[in-house]
């Protein structure tokens, strides 16, 4: 058994929390009560959770515009997140950031990021800090297939190799960057081999298989903690929704999403594996699902009832106002 029963249950709880959070947001956004962009992470849960299963609150992650899953996986408060997405005063960022900017330093979550390719250089900086402080900590950055083409990402990878930093570059290849296929926009055979070209260990795994991600991330995180420098992992996955809520997805073949929901379902894969190996009983997993659903219900009703930011908040958190 690669993880203990409690750890397995915790991983499943996180993946289910992400799935339920996102599926619920899909409905809530349609109600018109959530402003701005919402990029949902459904389908990719095994990546966030497989990686963060190796990290604690003092390790860091840098995330993307599709950041809810990373936040939940890293331990951000689900109710605080929901309030933030609804733009509420006691949301995780006081309602000032919204879906694309959720951050929680106390959980080592350096921020979702609305600039594609914004995260990896920040992750490198955090790794410089923890290395200098001798904290033995690791920083992981998450980047999409689309983001993997951004110059900032190449610069960050090279710098991490030059400085032999404890960084793990996770690439979530869900097949699309907005309306463009990764098969068009990523010019190399794959993202992992391109990362390897920078001089770091790189591998490619099935991102719909929690255990595959967990094991690859384990190798990378151990390498980083032991002073072996950065690594990259490309995780092939899919997104169950459009790029953003409201995307008509004309770039996707009809039926692709339904087919992926069946064939590329990390939750079903997890259940199947733990059942087959007799690691956990189905009723234990069912109980997790029930608990999570009521947590998400609570998050939504608390977020809906929560107060809006006060107008005075507009000019706080900035060093001077004119």
């Amino acid at each position: 058994m690669p993880l203990g029963k409690q750890e397995l249950l915790a991983a499943y709880r996180k993946m289910v929390t992400i799935r339920e959070f996102e599926e619920r947001l899909h409905v809530e956004v349609a109600s018109g009560d959530i402003a701005g962009f919402c990029h949902l992470y459904s389908g990719q849960e095994a990546v966030a959770v497989g990686v963060t299963s190796h990290l604690d609150d003092d390790d860091y992650i840098a995330s993307t515009h599709r950041g809810h899953g990373h936040c939940i996986a890293k331990g951000c408060d689900v109710i605080g997140m929901m309030k933030e997405i609804f733009g509420r005063r006691d949301g995780l960022c006081g309602g000032k950031g919204g879906s694309m900017h959720i951050a929680d330093m106390s959980k080592g979550m350096l921020g979702a990021n609305a600039i594609v390719g914004g995260g990896p250089p920040i992750a490198v900086g955090a790794a410089i800090a923890t290395q200098l402080q001798g904290r033995g900590k690791v920083t992981a950055s998450f980047t999409g297939d689309g983001g993997s083409n951004q110059g900032t990402v190449f610069e960050a990878m090279n710098l991490a190799v030059v400085l032999q930093l404890p960084t793990v570059f996770i690439f979530e290849n869900n097949g699309y960057g907005e309306h463009t296929g990764a098969d068009y926009a990523v010019g190399s055979a794959d993202i992992a081999s391109r990362a390897a070209g920078f001089g770091m260990a790189a591998e490619k795994v099935d991102g719909c298989d929690y255990f595959a991600v967990y094991e690859a991330a384990g190798r990378a995180v151990t390498r980083a903690r032991q002073g072996g420098g950065p690594s990259a992992i490309e995780c092939t996955t899919t997104r169950y929704f459009g790029h953003f809520e409201g995307d008509p997805q004309r770039y996707r073949a009809k039926g692709e999403v339904e087919q992926h929901r069946r064939a590329m379902n990390c939750l079903a894969n997890f259940r199947q594996r733990v059942n087959a190996e007799d690691w956990l009983a189905p009723d234990q997993l069912d109980a997790v699902e029930t608990e999570v659903r009521s947590l998400i219900d609570r998050a939504v009703s608390e977020a809906r009832a929560a107060p809006a930011p006060a107008l005075d908040d507009l000019c706080t958190d900035v060093y001077v106002s004119y």
Binding site: G175, T180, D183, A185, Y251, A253
Partner: peptide
């Protein structure tokens, strides 16, 4: 620019997806 047409690559084969 990015997605000025859209649908390059991807499974639908529809250019101008965006």
């Amino acid at each position: 620019g990015e997605d000025v047409s859209g649908g390059a690559g991807g499974s639908s084969g529809k250019r101008d997806a965006a």
